[in-house]
Design a protein around this nucleic acid. Sequence first.
DNA 1: CGACTAGTTGAGGCCAGTCAATGTTGGTGG
DNA 2: CCACCAACATTGACTGGCCTCAACTAGTCG
Lengths: 255, 255
Amino acid sequence: MTPPATASEAVPRDAPFEVISIRDLRVRCATCSMRELCLPVGLSPGELEQVDSAVASRRRLHKGDALYRAGEAFGALYAIRVGSLKTIVLAEDGREQVAGYHMLGDIIGLDGIGGERHGCDAIALEDAEVCVLPFERLEELARSVPALQHNLHRFIANEITRDHGVMLLLGSMRAEERVAAFLLSLSERYRQRGYSSTEFVLRMTREEIGSFLGLKLETVSRLFSRLQEAGIIRVGGRTIAINDLDALREVASGS
Amino acid sequence: MTPPATASEAVPRDAPFEVISIRDLRVRCATCSMRELCLPVGLSPGELEQVDSAVASRRRLHKGDALYRAGEAFGALYAIRVGSLKTIVLAEDGREQVAGYHMLGDIIGLDGIGGERHGCDAIALEDAEVCVLPFERLEELARSVPALQHNLHRFIANEITRDHGVMLLLGSMRAEERVAAFLLSLSERYRQRGYSSTEFVLRMTREEIGSFLGLKLETVSRLFSRLQEAGIIRVGGRTIAINDLDALREVASGS
DNA sequence: CGACTAGTTGAGGCCAGTCAATGTTGGTGG
DNA sequence: CCACCAACATTGACTGGCCTCAACTAGTCG
């Protein structure tokens, strides 16, 4: 389904320092910039080495590629190194909904844990790269490295907590509050990753944002415009600049 | 906060067979009717014994009691033996939403895993009894009993999958579809537990159901009435009888 | 350049919310 | 046992927020 990420993609043609390129291909948590947000946080160097040995490979995705699809056999978790993905849940009747928006440092695929199949689609919103963490190896390793087991559990809890937040948003917030809460959530997540919390680029279309928020794309567009008229944000296509974080918080909590 | 479940509650005054009563107090997975739906499913007798030794105690709850509250230190998972509970997520601004409805055989408290605190309130909807599964012991045991580790993961995945289903419901279904889907979900869960799938008693008020479904209580009431007029269900206060499961499925999927 | 996708904005309709009145149920105490 | 009360539930009338449908613009790609 997805074109295999061949080595030739990672190594520029005629690369003058092939040795370095090959070493880069080898995933090494110790030098990964996402180390502090990812699974190995807090592990000793020795333990880190063990995790390294469990990481099978990286996988590159082009915009629109599926990392996995609902119903596919579950075999691994994925740590996002570069780019962003959306997850989509599908109903039997064909209805679908964006369930999550995932960016670098996030671990995805947790919904497949313990079951045999993935429960949703994960689609790249832009070119992306993930570390493949074969789950059996991870489970095995977690048995001997309690800190890893604990981190794994923490990621799981985060996922559940995040989902609960979305349920609260979908179940009890009005459209304007949802949009504001969405922007605040993005702002906070970019901040945690060291990026600007007041200016960023949306990687989803209005329709995808609407699907995530339980709204129609026109409503999302209108509310962006309304927030802009109020001077709270500036919208330039997919670029969002937040002028007044506090005002946005107030909108999110229902003025 | 919750009155302690004393032994005197479990042992009738002047009980003629006190020894038996005391043995009943001791939790034993091997003889538990929920064995096949609960954490130890598929474990060998020896492994079962180990789980037994990890189960600290039971806890009894009266209607309205909190099993735990958001912000409380997380220390254990809970297996529901008798009765039912709701979980509630709370926003900073005081907004709250019913996030789940849990019945016997369910494991709750998973949102606290790995974190230090619970992320929601769990409130008994009727008198209930739970097995207390101290999480540290469980984590420890999971390291030596792969089947237990696997079951634990399966429960976690179920929780995430369930939450995704709720998000789909809240984000993309209309009111009538939500109510129908809610009844179908209850029907299915009662069926799995060996109860009637076509007649059951709701343990939640209209308001709680509404909160769970992202609707107002009046809307829930109206839609119950409408489904009754259509001959699909019969409503008698909190007793629901489903006349036509297929018709209900059709409503749930958007006629 | 035309076809296509993404986004914005407006007009109007409908679904679910709000407000309000009334009915029903269950628990408590006389 | 009944009276009373509070909580829960039903139903109606009206409102309004979001959806639907539609027109138009801007940017992209073959």
